[in-house]
Amino acid sequence: MEATTAEEEDDASISFFMKLAFDQAKEALTRLEVPVGCVIIQDGHVIGSGSNRTNETRNATRHAEMEAIDMVLNGWHKTSETATDPSLGPLPTHVDVVKRFGNCDLFVTCEPCIMCAAALCLLGFRKVYYGCTNDRFGGCGSVLSLHSDGCAPFTNGLDKTRGFQSVGGVMADEAISLLRSFYEQGNPNAPRPHRPVCKHHLVS
């Protein structure tokens, strides 16, 4: 967790956006998915949101962050498709996309896993706020520190490695109890035989 600097964080807006992420997480719970939710903010506006869809898609990479990122990318794509204003230009390029994410913050109820943290680096997010830590898979300090190490893309022209600012512990208790409520009811899609539920399995 990094200490906040000069400009005091607007606590009210942080908890406002984190609550929106929680709404997403609770929505995932009703779909019997691991309850992790996320929103993406640009200039004080929510431009993307999502929650876990790993069970539904049978694709274990469809974490909340990935869902929200795709929503943003689809939105940008659509805007440029229907744009009448020529100054908006054609489809965003890879560089454009990274530039735009550079003005975006992400709020997620649980520390991004290594995969998502790497993705957030690749896209160049500015700042990431998360709830509880993810002791088994966390990529923002728990297992690896991709937010500071960065994850350089294969495609060049987007010079080198970049990380993002990471702020953890926002509404962490709520995040933990939400995850616990999921694991107490049991994950219907876990492979058999069911393993005993334990604290360390809280996050997937």
């Binding site: 790993t54 694709n59 274990a60 990479t61 896993c113 290594i114 995969m115 998502c116 943290a117 790497a118 993705a119 690749l122 898979f137 990529g139 690896l144 991709l146 994850c151 350089a152 893309p153 294969f154 490695t161 997937s204």
Partner: peptide
């Protein structure tokens, strides 16, 4: 890369066989 390597953990593959090393990432 870290994203892909972790994705393969999530997706529970048995073995990963890769070709050229990537010193950077």
């Amino acid at each position: 890369c870290a994203m892909c390597a972790m994705a393969l953990v999530h997706q529970r593959v048995r073995r990963v066989i890769y070709g050229i090393s990537n010193k950077m990432v």
